[in-house]
Computed example of a mutant assay.
Amino acid sequence: MPVTSVTTDPEALTMTLVGDFAAPVERLWKALTEPAQLERFWGPPGYPATFSEFDFTPGGRASYVMTSPQGDRYGGGWEFIDIDEPVSFSVLDYFTDESGARNDEMPLQRMVFRFEATETGSRLTNVTSFTSSEALEQVIAMGAIEGSTLAINQLDRVLQDLREYAQGKGTQTEILSDTHVRITRLVNGPRELVWRAHTEPELMKRWLLGPDGWRMSVCEIDPAVGGRYRYAWEPLEGTEGEGFGFDGETLVSVPPVRAVTTEHMTGTDYPSTVNDLNLYEEDGATLITVLIEYPDKDTRDMVLATGMTEGMETSYARLEREVLAG
């Protein structure tokens, strides 16, 4: 992981994050100073940021909202103080309320981003200074150390060319915590069509089949927030196995970028998971990312042991072959 340390100094009232990356300083600078790049990692997994304003000039402002898988929104903003490309820039960092205005009831801090070349690439040092020990303790209690580590650790895949990062690797499964797993798969095709393939029944029935020898017998989707879906599969003649299905509700929908749904195995008392689908397009290819939140570690391990990754790879390969190639 690129983040090598996150330390706090109660006497100096600072929190310092250091990360090392296999990319030149200029590329790292671009990732931290362009909103389209920031949106890919500024926010821990499951809480992506959307920037509505980004005036990268001294005195300019940036505004963003992080949206949780349950649809809860957390706003923040920066006021740029000074910029020394590509060495450093500093901002006043603050929380915002529902209207986007600065929330003066929450801590205000100064952040300095410093960039330097290393033998293997570049280093980011981010120093956050607080106005009081109470403000420092409050932000730490809110999960700033864990959240910033998870967020910046996503930078690796942003800094690489998308095809270089994922091409030829198939479906990849990463265990992020006891309850979180991230699935990624690069497919050759535009994001708009990949989104349609996840939300239109006639397209979904062509690829979301798992292993060969099965068919999707039910595919009912209401992709709007609050809408419900129901899927069912059954084996073709000559294939062993019993039919099964899933049902759930859409929690977040931002076409054609993000959809968050619950997932429950129909007819069982198994607990539901929360599946957070994100699509990112670059140079005609789309990176599919699914962040899955399980109720506990045992459920996570049970699902992974079913061969979920292999089944998803079969379906994604079929998506490229049967939908995107046409």
Rank of each mutant, 00 (worst) to 15 (best):
I81W: 01
D82E: 14
I83Y: 05
P86M: 09
V87W: 05
V87L: 10
S90C: 08
S90I: 02
V91R: 01
L92E: 10
L92G: 05
D93K: 03
F95K: 06
F95L: 07
D97R: 08
S99H: 12
S99Q: 10
G100T: 03
R102K: 13
N103C: 10
E105Y: 07
L108D: 14
L108W: 02
Q109I: 14
Q109N: 12
Q109M: 15
V112C: 06
V112Y: 04
F113W: 12
F115T: 11
F115S: 06
F115V: 12
A117L: 00
T118N: 05
T120Q: 11
T120C: 07
T120G: 10
R123N: 10
L124C: 11
N126V: 12
V127F: 04
V127N: 02
V127G: 04
F130Y: 15
S133I: 11
E137K: 13
V139C: 06
I140Q: 12
A141T: 09
G143W: 02
G143R: 08
A144H: 07
I145C: 00
I145D: 09
I145T: 13
I145L: 09
G147M: 01
T149M: 03
T149C: 08
A151P: 04
A151K: 00
I152T: 13
N153L: 01
L155Y: 02
L155N: 03
R157S: 15
V158L: 03
Q160P: 01
D161M: 01
L162T: 15
L162Y: 04
R163P: 02
Q167M: 06
K169A: 07
T171A: 10
Q172T: 14
Q172S: 09
T173I: 06
L176S: 11
S177I: 08
D178L: 02
H180Y: 04
V181G: 03
I183N: 05
I183V: 15
L186H: 02
L186I: 07
N188V: 08
P190F: 01
R191A: 13
R191W: 05
R191Y: 05
V194P: 02
W195R: 11
